[in-house]
Write a protein that binds this DNA or RNA. Structure first.
Length: 617
DNA sequence: TCTGCGATTATTTTT
DNA sequence: TAATCGCAGA
């Protein structure tokens, strides 16, 4: 489809900071891709002078795909990645100057939480049961670009934060937020480095700008310099990440920060039928903290939004499954046209059980890594690299580390710090020290085991080796461990263990198909997804389930943000939108059975756009 | 440090 | 419901 005049103007306006406020379905992603193309094709910039920032890795890949479709071969692509990945790149290229450990590791949130617990242990063990709260607080400080020295010392928080940073460095690790903070610090301190990256970011295009947090914004400003090539794109009404420190205030204040900035809007919604857009607009206008924008649907005279009013989740699952089955049998829709959206938790389980019974494929997010999986992977990491202090730290907390508890861990850590050696070396040295007499036997056994596994590694094929390790740990019967071992079979024959681990890391959090079929079959599947991660996607048919009071909006949450989340969910639909409510829900997590009223959001949609369905069966 | 039992508590996500 | 957490006692 050719660009509208409105879009064309946005694509071609260059030479000053540009803010684009664009509602759902107005073609944000398209405009971003087209702008990159425009810059390159008109020689306004080389690919080395353009960087595109997306919110997720998946979105980055989609952007690259779009550029390919538009006829830009991959070798002509500029850098397109997440801000975290850009920050990582900047830091890796300047590890020494930035004062970071060479080949620093990135601690995932589990590893970071262990290190925080160590920090609390060192500063004030009494607080150790509150570690979750402290973790959250430190996270939010980092999201505000605040370092330990920037905070007032209340309740030991400053000391704990300080110690946490020390211990991260001791483990040669940065947490996710450090990536942003350290990159900012590096650019602030070193003019030449700053200029080098500012040159690379001469044209910096940022998608999903409404979800940026202050620390990220700070980094973006450093990279953008004067900002004449800064192009930011978003919709304050779709800001749904305040729990990560994101705030719509940043996008709304952009033109105050960049005085020469121009603001443009995109107002034609190509995605949603009239009644959905009008209903969604009526809803979102109940928010105060927003900028009102026009949003014109391309009128398709589609039917109204459907409000599915069920007696129970069982009835809901049956009705939805039946509807899906019939529409597929009747060739009206394919599985890939349909999405089931939910706020979170296991609310979609019942439907996810029903749908595959009719031989209809589904895609669901893969469940989180379990403790056992983490331990298993920690072993594998240690076998490939004994200096992986993070993996060693994970091991030390595991059940497998017999007789080793918080005291031993603390002693080992303190010993390593005061002798300036690696945690792994400490395990070996400690066997000779009297102080560690109590643990000598167990430490030696562990060191020997890792050495022994390391020898086995070279003798066995990868999958065999993994089975051996699982057996050694007593995990051979664990289904979730088997899953991991299965994945090793997807790799080309003769792949190394480190390649396998790399692959696992990359797959983490990736949405995977439940069943293994041909790739095509897998893709033609009903999508089960949270309202948060559906942002940026669209489907012909959308079911939003869990429309219950106190569940959505969730009690104790920010109602305006929940409303924005609902707005995002509603506006994913290209064709049909079902809002599903069940009076009785038997969530496994809902302490048995619970009775609900419908979500108040339902009543914010004017009656003329919505029509109830009451299943009888 | 370990074991076992009862209490607790379950969102949303970035490499 | 189920996994994890926290506490008490060995």
């Amino acid at each position: 489809m050719p660009l509208t005049p409105e879009q064309k103007d946005i694509v071609q306006t260059t030479g000053k900071p540009l803010l684009v406020l664009a509602g759902p379905g107005t073609g944000k992603t398209e405009v971003l891709a087209q702008r990159i193309l425009f810059l390159i094709r008109n020689n306004l910039a080389t690919k080395e002078e353009i960087v595109g920032i997306t919110f997720t890795t998946k979105a980055a890949n989609q952007m690259k795909d779009r550029l390919k479709q538009l006829g830009l071969p991959e070798d002509k692509h500029p850098l397109i990645c997440t801000l975290h990945s850009l920050a990582t790149k900047v830091l890796r290229e300047n590890e020494k100057v930035a004062g970071l450990p060479t080949e620093f590791m990135i601690a995932d949130s589990y590893e970071a939480s262990l290190i925080l617990q160590d920090a609390i242990e060192d500063v004030n063990p009494h607080l150790s049961k509150n570690w979750k709260k402290l973790f959250e607080q430190i996270f939010l400080f980092k999201a505000q670009n605040k370092r330990p020295e920037d905070i007032d010392d209340k309740k030991m928080l400053k000391k704990i934060y300080q110690r946490y940073q020390e211990l991260l460095r001791f483990h040669k690790a940065l947490d996710f937020e450090d990536l942003i903070l350290e990159a900012s610090a590096l650019l602030e301190k070193h003019q030449e480095i700053r200029e080098f990256y500012q040159n690379k970011c001469k044209n910096l295009l940022v998608d999903e700008f409404q979800d940026i947090n202050p620390a990220e914004y700070h980094l973006i400003k450093l990279l953008a310099g004067e900002g004449n090539g800064l192009f930011v794109l978003g919709d304050d009404d779709q800001s749904i990440y305040t729990f990560r420190g994101g705030t719509p205030k940043i996008i709304l204040g952009f033109t105050k920060d960049f005085k020469s900035a121009e603001e443009k809007v995109m107002t034609t919604c190509f995605r949603c039928p009239d009644k959905i857009i009008l209903g969604a607009l009526a809803l979102i206008r109940n928010n105060n903290d927003r900028r009102d924008k026009e949003l014109k649907p391309i009128n398709r005279n589609a039917g109204p939004i459907k409000f599915l009013d069920c007696k129970s989740d069982v009835q809901e699952a049956r009705w939805i499954t039946e509807w899906i089955k019939e529409s597929i049998d009747g060739k009206e829709y394919e599985p890939k046209d349909i999405a089931i959206l939910y706020r979170g938790g296991d609310i979609a389980d019942k439907i996810a059980e029903e749908v595959p019974k009719f031989n209809i494929h589904i895609i669901r997010p893969s469940p989180e890594e379990t403790k056992h999986q983490r331990e298993f992977i920690a072993y594998l990491r240690l076998v490939t690299d004994r200096r992986d202090s993070l993996a060693l730290r994970v091991y030390l907390s595991s059940k497998r580390a017999k007789k080793i508890g918080p005291i031993a861990i603390k002693k080992l850590r303190n010993y390593a710090e005061s002798n300036n050696c690696e945690l792994w070396d400490t395990l070996i040295i400690a066997q000779k020290e009297n102080e560690f007499k109590r643990w000598r036997k167990y430490l030696k056994a562990f060191v020997d085991l890792i050495e022994q596994l390391n020898k086995k590694l070279s003798q066995l094929p990868l999958t065999e080796f993994l089975i051996q390790v699982a057996k050694t740990l007593g995990y051979e019967k664990e289904p979730r461990i088997k899953e991991i071992i299965e994945q090793s079979k997807d790799l080309p024959e003769g792949s190394s263990l480190s390649a396998f681990l790399e692959n696992l890391r990359g797959r983490k959090g990736e949405k995977t198909a439940e069943r293994k079929e041909s790739a095509e079959d897998r893709e033609n599947a009903v999508l089960f997804i949270t309202m948060h991660s559906v942002k940026g996607l669209e489907r012909k048919v959308v079911f939003v389930i869990g429309m219950e009071k106190d569940e959505f909006p969730k009690s104790n949450s920010n109602v305006e943000e929940e409303r924005r989340l609902f707005y995002v969910a509603m506006t994913r639909a290209k064709d049909k939108l079902f809002l599903c409510y069940a009076k009785k829900r038997e969530g496994q997590s809902a302490q048995g059975v619970n009775f609900y009223d419908p979500s108040p959001f339902i009543f914010e949609i004017p009656e003329e756009y919505i029509e109830p369905i009451r299943p009888t069966a």
